[in-house]
C-alpha cells in the first residue's frame, strides 16, 4: 500500500500545473552561487541605475528603505531544475526605481557585489514584473540568499534574479552576462525551457 501511495504522490507532483516543463518541486531553498558570499554592510551599500552616461540615480540603504515597498507572492524556478512555489518577499518595485530614468536603451546589465552580472531586457524589469527584494518570508534577506538585497525577476529562471545587486545599467544591445556568456540562454523563460544558448 505504501509503495503505491508514494508512486502516485510523485506523479501528481510532476503534473502540477504551476511547474514549468522539466522542473521539480522543492520545499527547501537551495543555495547556489558562482563564488564566495560577499558580506555587505548596509552602512556602505548603495544601488545605482545608470544609462551609460554615468550614474543617474543612486540610493543608499536609508534612502532605499524609505521608498514604498510591496509584498510579493510568487513561484521561483531555478535552471538546475528545482522550483519553489508560493514564496513571499518584500521589495521595491523596479517601476519605482526607474520612475525618474529616461533612456532609449531597451536592455540592461545587472551588476552585483562580487562581480556577477546578468542581462535582462528593460521591459522585463518594468510593468510590475521585477523588484529589488530585501526580505524573504518576513525576515531580512540572508547573505547566502543575496542579502541585504537581490533582484527578483521571478518570471525568468532564477539566475537572472541577481544576488547582492548593486546596480543596473541600461544598454543599447542585449549583451550577455556571466552565465549567458558561458552557455546559458540569453533570455531564460522557464515556461519555454530556455536553459541553454
Amino acid at each position: 500500500m505504501g509503495i503505491f501511495t508514494r508512486g502516485f504522490t510523485g506523479r501528481a507532483r510532476e503534473q502540477n500545473p504551476n511547474l514549468p516543463p522539466g522542473q521539480f518541486l522543492t520545499e527547501g531553498f537551495p543555495v547556489l552561487s558562482a563564488g564566495p558570499t560577499p558580506r555587505i554592510d548596509t552602512a556602505t551599500w548603495e544601488f545605482t541605475i545608470s544609462t551609460g552616461a554615468g550614474a543617474v540615480q543612486r540610493w543608499n540603504w536609508d534612502e532605499f528603505m524609505a521608498l514604498p515597498s510591496e509584498e510579493i507572492a510568487t513561484d521561483i524556478h531555478c535552471v538546475t531544475r528545482w522550483s519553489k512555489l508560493g514564496t513571499t518577499w518584500r521589495g521595491v518595485s523596479l517601476d519605482t526605481l526607474f520612475a525618474g530614468v529616461e533612456t532609449t536603451n531597451e536592455y540592461t546589465m545587472v551588476h552585483s557585489y562580487g562581480g556577477y552580472t546578468t542581462n535582462v531586457p528593460l521591459e522585463d524589469l518594468t510593468g510590475g514584473k521585477a523588484w529589488v527584494a530585501f526580505e524573504f518570508d518576513g525576515e531580512p534577506l540572508a547573505p547566502e540568499h543575496g542579502g541585504p538585497a537581490r533582484l527578483l525577476v521571478p518570471h525568468l529562471y532564477f539566475w537572472k534574479s541577481a544576488k547582492w545587486v548593486r546596480g543596473i545599467e541600461t544598454t543599447s544591445d542585449d549583451d550577455p552576462g556571466f552565465w549567458e556568456q558561458n552557455g546559458y540562454h540569453l533570455y531564460g523563460d522557464p515556461w519555454r525551457e530556455q536553459r541553454y544558448s
Binding site: 547556489l32 558562482a34 563564488g35 564566495p36 535552471v79 539566475w159 558561458n182
Partner: peptide, 23 residues
Amino acid sequence: VYADAPGLVVRCSRCGDVLMTVV
C-alpha cells in the same frame, strides 16, 4: 571550484578571479 551553481565555476586560489567555467 564552486559547484553549487548552474555550472562549475573555477576561481584563482590567490585573487579569486574566475579562471574557467564548465557548463
